[in-house]
Simulated assay, not measured.
Amino acid sequence: MRKLPVFRSVGEVFSGVTRHYFQLLLAAWPAVILIATGVALYMWSYQQAGLGEVFALLQSGASHEEIAAAMEAVEQGAMGPAYTVAIILMFLASAVAAVRWHRFVLMGEHSGMLLRREDFRYIWTFIKVILLYFLLLLVGIFLVFGIQTITTIQSEAGNTGVAGVLAVGAVLLIVFGYLYILGFMLRTMLALPDASIGGTGKVFVIFSRSQGNTWRMAGYALMIGFAYGLIVLGLVLVLSLLAAALGGGAIMTALVVAAGLAAYFYFLMLQITMLSVAYREIVGL
């Protein structure tokens, strides 16, 4: 039973993505272009739905209720054909890019082929993982709802002590349940790099080979997410300083869009590399 070296793996993920950022982009350049197109289409659908008016309300100091109502209207208006096409395009292109990036990390392959057999296997494996996730989510919701129902019954019956214990239990179940499901799902997602490098991508086979790593995988993901959050915070701070120095205008808008897109690709690469490194350390090549 192989254990994931969490701290070393986190460092490897960030150093690898940072050092090979442009190589990773080139390794999946057709998919990267399609992802960027999907993002642009996604943003356009919101812009057409009146997102600019929401920003105008923010600048005018409108009430929270007015801004929330305007944003809700924008979200409803954006759900059109362009939005749907953008989501599908981003999903499919991201899957193709993920296969290239897994192969880059695990096999050192720099190919930018448009399509390969592993792309379809990856997508099918991803669908299986998502279905499993929703099943687990339903089980978790059912358990929490059951505890809340029992708590309410006990409280109405005057058993406040029992109700209090159950309420604390519900909170603990939510916290630890979330962490466990996170680790559990990340173990199932190790089937994705397996499918990418020509393996079978059988979810439960790979899951069984990662036994004993549930909590390690949860901590691994949380540490990477926290570190990425700090990076984004720093990026926002830099952009804010630039905005104060340059003011608004086309240049600042272009900088914000470019930085946002670069950060988005960096995030995708972190996710893929995170799974690749964990796969190599736990399952092995």
Rank of each mutant, 00 (worst) to 15 (best):
E75G: 09
T84S: 14
A93W: 00
V105K: 02
A98E: 00
L57M: 12
I141Y: 09
G61R: 13
Q154W: 08
I87N: 05
R103D: 04
F134D: 07
V17Q: 04
V17A: 06
V232E: 02
V74Q: 12
A36H: 01
Y42G: 03
L51E: 05
F184L: 14
V277Y: 03
G212F: 05
Y46D: 04
V205I: 11
M189C: 10
I130P: 02
G199Y: 01
L136V: 14
G38T: 12
A98K: 00
Y122G: 01
A157W: 07
E281Q: 14
G260I: 00
Y122H: 07
H110N: 13
S276L: 05
S94A: 04
V54K: 01
G161Q: 14
A73D: 11
K3C: 07
A263P: 00
S63W: 15
G164A: 15
N159M: 13
G146D: 09
V105N: 03
S208T: 12
L190G: 01
T152L: 06
R103N: 06
A250Y: 09
F267N: 03
V74F: 10
F7P: 05
Q48A: 10
V39F: 07
G284W: 10
A56D: 07
G219L: 08
R103E: 03
Y46E: 08
T253C: 03
G177V: 09
V236Y: 10
I88T: 10
A62L: 14
R2Q: 12
M269V: 08
M269H: 06
A259Y: 02
V105S: 07
I123Q: 01
T37D: 11
L242T: 04
Q148E: 12
F267T: 03
A167S: 11
Y42R: 07
A73L: 13
A69L: 12
L233Q: 13
T84E: 09
Q23V: 12
M217K: 09
T152R: 09
T200Y: 08
A259D: 01
N159D: 13
N159K: 10
A36E: 02
A95R: 00
G108I: 08
A78H: 04
S63N: 15
